[in-house]
């Protein structure tokens, strides 16, 4: 089949891809940060709490984990405004969806992290006279973060890949940029031979950064 590769089109519109990649990373970052807040709050909440609380948190986690992200994206963007009366733009909507999605997975991560804190540390904190609040702040949280660092990092990389779904809301991230170039130039091979490696290389770099951070901070479980 005749197909002449011509990458000029790609370079012409490359700024869309570059900015798109930046936006993808931004979406993933905000998503993981808010997701961490949600996940951590719920993990701490349900850690010592009674059955009703744990049931509600559990229901939230199970619901999010068993429903496709795509459906959640649509639900938040089209569904909620239709009953709520208010509206928001696509980027905000997607970011919130991503945060809620991440939060559900991170609750489990943080819960496991909290459980993994050696009891001895808490006792040591008590022994030197720290108040419960101080114990949480200075002993438990820092320890827990180091334990969950690998899982957090992997969640972030995963989230970065999930930002590709933002394209359905016309959010101008990397995937949308790729689709835009395709629909305007029909240069399918060129587009994908550039965009797919962009995802791969970015993922690879993120993985490398994660390994470096792990080496520096993470507590390895022997």
């Amino acid at each position: 089949m005749q197909y002449h590769l011509n990458y000029n089109f790609i370079w012409k519109y490359f700024d869309r891809l570059a900015w798109g990649l930046a936006l993808s990373l931004e979406l993933a970052t905000i998503g993981i940060l808010i997701g961490c807040i949600i996940g951590l709050a719920l993990a701490v909440l349900s850690h010592g709490a009674g059955r009703p609380v744990r049931f509600v948190v559990g229901a939230y986690v199970e619901f999010i984990r068993n429903v496709p992200l795509l459906l959640l994206v649509y639900l938040v963007f089209y569904g909620i405004p239709s009953v709520g009366g208010f509206a928001y733009d696509a980027t905000t909507s997607f970011t919130m969806t991503l945060a809620v999605y991440a939060g559900a997975y991170l609750v489990e991560v943080f819960r496991a992290g909290l459980d993994a804190i050696p009891k001895g540390l808490i006792d040591a904190g008590r022994a030197i006279g720290l108040t419960p609040a101080q114990r949480v702040l200075h002993v438990q949280l820092p320890t827990m973060f180091r334990i969950v660092l690998p899982s957090l990092g992997n969640a972030f990389i995963s989230l970065f890949k999930d930002t590709s779904l933002a394209t359905v809301l016309a959010v101008p991230e990397l995937m949308y940029g790729a689709n835009w170039i395709y629909t305007n130039t029909f240069r399918i091979v060129e587009v994908w031979t550039v965009v797919a490696p962009m995802y791969l290389v970015t993922g690879f770099i993120l993985l490398g950064c994660l390994r470096l951070l792990e080496r520096r901070f993470a507590i390895r479980r022997r």
Binding site: M1, K161, T163, N179, Y182, W192, Y199, L200
Partner: peptide
């Protein structure tokens, strides 16, 4: 490689490029 790509990218790639291979 496959696991490093978003699933959506993979689907689009295959969907658009497979016809080109004949």
């Amino acid at each position: 490689l496959i696991r490093g790509l978003p699933l959506l990218v993979l689907i689009f790639c295959v969907y658009y490029m497979l016809p080109l291979t004949g």
